[in-house]
Every structure is written in structure tokens, then in C-alpha cells.
Design a protein around this nucleic acid. Structure first.
Lengths: 254, 254
DNA sequence: TATCATTTGTTCGTATGTATC
DNA sequence: CGATACATACGAACAAATGAT
């Protein structure tokens, strides 16, 4: 299936170098990359090799190339359009984001701080203390895997039993929070993007295949959300389905 | 933005030829494409040109290339995994799949027959009569467009007022069906894939960007669905959000 | 308006490495 | 092991888009 390109290939090395330079901030979002000629000099490779590296970054959605101008770091896409639905939960199964998964590997739990990527999820600024749990889930019957991440602000956990069991299942987390008398509501958002190289490797995703990203944010009636869950699955193998029934007081949809 | 590659480029012509050959059935799903050497002879072009064409088809997700073996037509991905949710509709706005759109161009309505792609949506075999309406929708405030398609079996329309107004808005369709005494329920499915070249052009989607595909299937309690809607939007610009509240009799989710 | 330098796009040629059968 | 097929890499030349002169 997903033909694994040789990682030691010259153009892959160049692509990795540029990738690192971007994440290191040398080329911030929107900034132009060095021209092909400059990259040739910088890395002492031929033009086909440079172009191959650029093509790899392009197909990851990391950069954008404009004929006659140059290559530019693609800004993190902020969805300008959100298609909203308001729904009421009726299902009771203890599923992770609506599906029963097995945990393929022990969860990785760590403390960190909110970043520009994770902060907005929880409506927090950058640099706030955060407890993160990463899981690799598996559905053996479908032969699929998924990446699951739970993010909870440390301020929410502090003083609760959760502080002593940071590797708890999401279900237990919600049960604890509900037991603490919180009245929970949720928002779920479905989006899609091209996977990053590590995500492709972890999920075994073949090229030109996007990932579905489902984010669930939990509220308890206070100003800020108290937790966020993120689920990444191969979009070629998985979909998210909603069975809908009209409430008696609701007219027909559309 | 989306740097439009020159359509007249040699490798684009070759890519188009292969694309046509695939959709014409010369290379069915799973079948191997001719080798690079054979393509060089067939189209009288150089190896880089052939490889460029193959790279284009790869990035569309149309073919899969295996080192040392060959290129193969990728079978239409059937989602092996569906993440299910059951929800109750409470919103009443007359939106198209939950969002207010403007119709950018007059809808294109035509009669056709179900295919291997459209048949399963309505749980019909191939060759059943179908009324299809294609729309290009726009959200000027977000600067985004969407492709919307309505599919209704002719057997459902026959004898109803809809037979005389095939270009009706989806809202009117549901209103008519509900007025006919049908008790409607719906299923919505969110998936993602790489756009086809025409879809990319119609939506102005930049490369390496997937499209979100939302499909709504309408049931009326009988065995088969009576209508299907399909909405395609740029996944970099749009997301689908569900605001969730727990029913009083429902436990916490997940 | 026209021209020019810069930058990316396209196309050829050639050679060698590596996976598959 | 050999034949076939795709992957990587270099060199070279011209075309086309962009922005500044």
C-alpha cells in the first residue's frame, strides 16, 4: 500500500531541513522560502533535488508555491466558515467520540503549556499549564487505527481525583467532572487536512489521503471550556455519521 | 493562491489521457497501469514527462504506485469504519445542510440513472431513474463556495408537485414530502477526500487541500431512502460543528 | 507601455540505485 | 541471478509569470 519513500533520500533530507527551519521559526507563516537557486547553494544539491523536496512539502500542505514569485509558508488555516448544527445527545454508550476503540499502546501523558495551536481549543492564551494524554487507538475489526488526544487545563484538574490518575480514560474524566456537580455540554467539530509525516506513519496512511479531525470541547456552564478531545482517523477508511430524528416541536430540516 | 498549472502542459495532457482511460474502464480499479517505459512509447514523451503525469494522478489519489511493481488504479475507498452518533434535530432554520448559502449560479437539473457511485447512497441498484440538481453555493461573508447536489429517485417524485418543479430548493422538496404525509428522518455523514480537478477549479481550492463531504440521506420510514444531498466544501476554510446538549435522560457521553 | 531580471514551470537527456518477481 | 519497474540524482535549456525599471 502506502509506498514508503526512502527517508534517507537526498531530497527527503532537504525537505526535513526546511521543515525544521519552518517549525523553528526561521520562516514564519506567510514568509517566503529561499528561491530554488538559493536552496541549491544552501544545501549543495541540484535543482531537481530541490524541486523534489519542495514538491514533498507542497503535498503536505506546508507550503504554497506561486509561479514567478516563490514559495511561501502556508499560514495555519483558520476555518472561515463553520456549518453549525445544534443537537441533543441521546446515546449512552461509553464510546470515544462515538466509537468503540481498543487502546493499541499505553497512553502517553505529559504536562505542557498551551501553544498557538492548542490554546484556542480551550479558549486559553499561550503558556497556560495543560495536561495532555496521547493515545493510539485501534479498531481490529476494521483494521484501522486512530490518534486520540485529551487536553485538560491543570486548573480544572487541580484538587480533583483526576490529579492522581492522569492516564484515565476520557469516560472516567467526564464521569469525575460530572460527579463534581458540573453540568456538562459539548461541541463537536469535524474538519479535514493532510496528515503530517509522523501522523501518516503512525496511522499507516497512504499518500494523497487526508485525515478526518474530530474535536470535542466540553463546557460546564462557566466561561471557559474545561476539556478538549481530538481524534484523527484516515479519511479514506472512516467517516463520521449522525443519525437524526426530528424533535416533535421541530419542523423539517434542510 | 492556488497556482493554476498550465493545462496545456505535456504532462497534463498525458495525465488527462490516463484519467480518461481509467474512467472509460480501460484500467479498472486495482488494475495496473502501463509501465513508465510503455507510457513513454504510447504517448511519445520523455520519462520525466511520464513521471510528472503519474505524480499528478498520485496527488489526486487516483492511482497508487508501488516501487518495483507498477502503478495501480486505486479502488474507490469504501469507509470500513463509521463513527456513529444519534442526535435529535431542534434547529428550524431553512438552511442547506445547516448553513445559509446563496445560489451563485442557476441550478443544473437533469435526469440520469444511478451509478456505482450514486446507487449505494439511495440503496438502489445501478440504472434506476434519478433526478439530480447541481448547485454552486456561495457564502460571500466567508468568501467560500460549495458544491451541492440533490439526488431523488424518479419514483419518489412521480405524481407529486415536485415533478413540475425539478429545480426546487431542497427546503421545498422536504416541505413537499412532509406535506405528503411522510414522517421524515435523516442520516448525515461527514467524510473527506482529495478533490477532483474540476471540483478544485469550481471551488477555487488550492493544492494539497482536501474537501469535506457531507451527505444527508432522508428516510420516510419505508425500506429505501427517498432523497440524498451532497455538500462539498474546502476543508481548509470550512468545518462542520455540532453543538450538543445532553438530554435529561442521557448520561454523559463517551 | 515596453523591457529586463528574477523565479518557478516544463521538457528533454543520462546514469545509477533499489525493490519486485 | 537476471529482468523489469520505479526512485533518485545530476545537467541543460527554454517557457511563462511576476515585479521592478
Amino acid at each position: 500500500m502506502g509506498s514508503i519513500q526512502r527517508p534517507g533520500a537526498l531530497y527527503q533530507q532537504v525537505a526535513a531541513e526546511i521543515r525544521n527551519a519552518i517549525s523553528a521559526g526561521e520562516f514564519p507563516p506567510g514568509a517566503p522560502l529561499p528561491s530554488e537557486t538559493q536552496l541549491i547553494e544552501r544545501y549543495k544539491v541540484s535543482r531537481p533535488t530541490v524541486r523534489n523536496a519542495i514538491a514533498a512539502l507542497r503535498s503536505e500542505g506546508l507550503i504554497e508555491v506561486v509561479h514567478g514569485k516563490g514559495s511561501f509558508v502556508r499560514p495555519t488555516p483558520v476555518p472561515a466558515l463553520t456549518i453549525h448544527r445544534t443537537i441533543t445527545r441521546h446515546d449512552s454508550a461509553t464510546y470515544v467520540l462515538g466509537h468503540r476503540w481498543e487502546t493499541a499502546e499505553p497512553p502517553q501523558v505529559y504536562r505542557t503549556e498551551t501553544t498557538a495551536a492548542t490554546g484556542p481549543l480551550l479558549e486559553l492564551g499561550e503558556g497556560e499549564a495543560l495536561v495532555v494524554a496521547d493515545r493510539i487507538l485501534a479498531d481490529p475489526s476494521a483494521g484501522t487505527r486512530a490518534l486520540h488526544r485529551t487536553l485538560i487545563p491543570e486548573s480544572v484538574i487541580k484538587g480533583t481525583p483526576l490529579a492522581d490518575m492522569p492516564d484515565a480514560d476520557p469516560e472516567k474524566v467526564y464521569a469525575e467532572l460530572a460527579a463534581a456537580g458540573r453540568d456538562l455540554t459539548w461541541t463537536e467539530t469535524v474538519s479535514a487536512r493532510m496528515p503530517q509525516p509522523e501522523e501518516r506513519a503512525a496511522l499507516g496512511i497512504s499518500e494523497a489521503t487526508p485525515v478526518l479531525r474530530t474535536v470535542r470541547v466540553t463546557y460546564d456552564g462557566t466561561a471557559r471550556p474545561i476539556a478538549a478531545e481530538e481524534l484523527l482517523v484516515d479519511a479514506a477508511l472512516a467517516q463520521v455519521a449522525f443519525r437524526i430524528t426530528a424533535a416533535e416541536d421541530a419542523p423539517a430540516p434542510s
